Amino acid sequence: MNLLRTLAQAPMPCMAADPVQIDRLRVLQAAGLVDAHIPQPRRDGLTQDPAAVHAITPRGWKVLRTNRIDAELSQAPGTQRVRPAAGERSHRTG
């Protein structure tokens, strides 16, 4: 969420070269929260070309507005919500 908030304040396109930040961008992209071009790591496995974030998606803006990411992620393409089996207790609190 912090990276998404930071991106909301940045002019687009926004470049990211830090490997940790690029990994976080992959998560945001997989969740459908940003439109980004993230190159594959180089063959040496040690270097990575910078990623370019082109836009925050409508889903990303909604997450920022509502400050709720869990409900949005359950609707992201390729994801599904895992529920406890009958008789098991959920570990969620609140």
Score class of each variant (00 low, 15 high):
Met1Asp: 03
Met1Leu: 13
Met1Thr: 14
Asn2His: 14
Asn2Met: 09
Leu3Pro: 13
Leu3Ile: 04
Leu4Ala: 04
Leu4Ile: 06
Arg5Lys: 15
Thr6Leu: 15
Thr6Asp: 15
Gln9Lys: 12
Gln9Trp: 03
Gln9Leu: 13
Gln9Gly: 13
Ala10Tyr: 04
Pro11Gly: 05
Pro11His: 05
Met12Gly: 06
Cys14Asn: 07
Ala16Pro: 03
Ala17Ser: 15
Ala17Cys: 03
Asp18Met: 07
Gln21Ala: 12
Gln21Thr: 12
Gln21His: 02
Ile22Leu: 04
Asp23Arg: 01
Asp23Lys: 01
Arg24Gly: 08
Arg26Tyr: 11
Leu28Asp: 13
Leu28Pro: 10
Gln29Phe: 00
Gln29Ser: 12
Ala30Val: 04
Leu33Glu: 04
Leu33Pro: 07
Leu33Ala: 03
Asp35Gln: 14
Asp35Ile: 01
His37Met: 01
His37Arg: 08
Ile38Cys: 10
Ile38Pro: 10
Ile38Met: 09
Pro39Gln: 07
Pro39Glu: 14
Gln40Ser: 12
Pro41Trp: 00
Arg42Cys: 04
Arg43Pro: 12
Arg43Glu: 14
Asp44Pro: 07
Asp44Leu: 05
Gly45Arg: 07
Leu46Asp: 09
Leu46His: 05
Thr47Ala: 06
Gln48Trp: 11
Asp49Ile: 04
Asp49Gln: 14
Pro50Met: 07
Ala51Asn: 10
Ala52Arg: 13
Ala52His: 06
Ala52Thr: 10
His54Gln: 11
Ala55Cys: 07
Ala55Ser: 14
Ala55Ile: 02
Ala55Gly: 14
Thr57Pro: 08
Arg59Thr: 09
Trp61Ile: 01
Lys62Ile: 04
Val63Thr: 09
Leu64His: 09
Arg65Leu: 03
Thr66Ile: 01
Asn67Cys: 01
Asn67Ala: 13
Arg68His: 11
Arg68Trp: 11
Arg68Tyr: 10
Arg68Ala: 05
Asp70His: 12
Ala71Phe: 00
Ala71His: 03
Glu72Ser: 13
Glu72Lys: 00
Leu73Arg: 10
Ser74Thr: 04
Ala76Trp: 13
Pro77Gly: 09
Pro77Arg: 14
Thr79Pro: 00
Arg81Met: 06
Val82His: 08
Val82Ala: 08
Pro84Gln: 10
Ala86Ser: 06
Ala86Asn: 01
Glu88Cys: 10
Arg89Glu: 10
Arg89His: 12
His91Glu: 03
Gly94Val: 12
Gly94Ile: 07
